[in-house]
């Protein structure tokens, strides 16, 4: 029983990759409706990716091999990170063996963004360097907040494996969602905005020279490389959404691999992600982008929230 559950757990990462363009499409559609537009069909990101995969690549004359390798590293690192999280199936305590935990996940995401920042420097365009330096600044501030928020969930479940945390919280019920979790959830939401290049830290739908971060790094990429990077960044967004719902609000997730439990888990997961997309669309429509020098304040607030969450979780577990 143990082996198929382990394999099934890792295969959930593929679900994230397959569903990520759909989630991005739904998000764009919701935002378009809020802007009184009709907007692109929800399957548009799939069409974009399919077209990009069939296109030729143009590589700048100044770029070395690193430029070509970087998109594959980004894609592989994101895929690895996706295989560590529960989507519709939690990991039971009885399933033996160790699986990569949340620290590995954060590390893999950092590897991906490091590769992308290096690749962006390669083409020798001014925008690439600007985007890389901004991305590194944002990530250096977001990462401590991210880790601290994740540790709150780990403290509650006494394990740092995402799959086991989800199983613990789902089985314990409402008692597992204390004030610490509420703070950590808020912190993780803010960090997710920064990590995925959403408003108010970065705007995914603009190419304004003064503000762009992620878009500045991918300006020089074309064809298949661009498709891989875009796909990976869509998967990263869905990965963070999955972390938000499955670490803190995993109720309904499948605790065993029976067909009924999996179907229920998938339905509940789709509902939760759709709800989160709606929240994100509302938040992005009603906020303006922050000035770049205000981003540290924003991420500082996220870090403080995560820290308060960690302390309250500690007090509840061990007392003063």
């Amino acid at each position: 029983m143990e082996a198929p559950l382990n394999a099934g757990f890792a295969f959930q990462g593929i679900v994230i990759f397959l569903a990520a363009p759909l989630a991005a499409g739904v998000l764009r559609k919701l935002k378009a409706v809020l802007q009184n537009r009709l907007g692109a069909p929800v399957v548009q990101p799939y069409r974009d990716l399919r077209k990009l995969l069939g296109k030729e690549e143009v590589v700048s004359g100044t770029a070395s091999g690193l430029f070509r390798v970087a998109p594959y590293v980004v894609f592989a690192a994101t895929a690895g990170a996706c295989s560590l999280v529960p989507v519709v199936l939690a990991r039971m305590a009885t399933a033996g063996g160790a699986w990569g935990d949340l620290v590995v996940l954060v590390g893999l995401l950092a590897l991906g963004r490091f590769a992308l920042a290096l690749g962006a420097l390669e083409a020798g365009s001014a925008f690439g360097g600007m985007g890389s330096s901004r991305e590194m600044m944002v990530s250096s501030l977001a990462e401590p907040a991210l880790l601290t928020a994740l540790f709150v969930a780990a403290l509650e479940a006494r394990t740092s494996e995402a799959g086991r945390i989800a199983a613990h919280v789902a089985r314990t019920g409402g008692a597992a969602f204390g004030p610490g979790s509420a703070f950590a959830l808020a912190a993780l939401f803010l960090v997710a905005l920064a990590e995925c290049g959403r408003l108010p830290v970065d705007n995914p739908s603009t190419h304004l020279e003064l503000t762009m971060i992620h878009e500045a790094m991918i300006l020089e990429y074309s064809g298949r490389s661009l498709a891989l990077i875009e796909w990976a960044s869509q998967a990263r967004l869905l990965l963070f959404m999955t972390l938000l719902v499955d670490l803190f609000l995993p109720w309904g997730i499948a605790l065993d691999a029976s067909a009924a439990a999996l179907a229920l888990g998938a339905a509940v997961y789709a509902l939760k992600i759709a709800g989160l997309c709606a929240v994100l669309a509302f938040a992005e429509t009603s906020t303006a982008k922050l000035r770049l020098f205000r981003v540290p304040d924003f991420l500082g607030a996220a870090f403080v929230l995560a820290l308060i969450g960690l302390f309250s979780q500690g007090f509840i577990q061990w007392g003063l």
């Binding site: 378009a32 692109a40 069909p41 548009q44 069409r47």
Partner: peptide, 18 residues
């Protein structure tokens, strides 16, 4: 919003590479 080219998959991009 009035013409909304994005509904037809037409997207204005910043880079000739795209």
């Amino acid at each position: 919003p009035v013409y909304d080219a994005e509904r037809f998959g037409v997207h204005v991009t910043a880079s000739p590479r795209h």
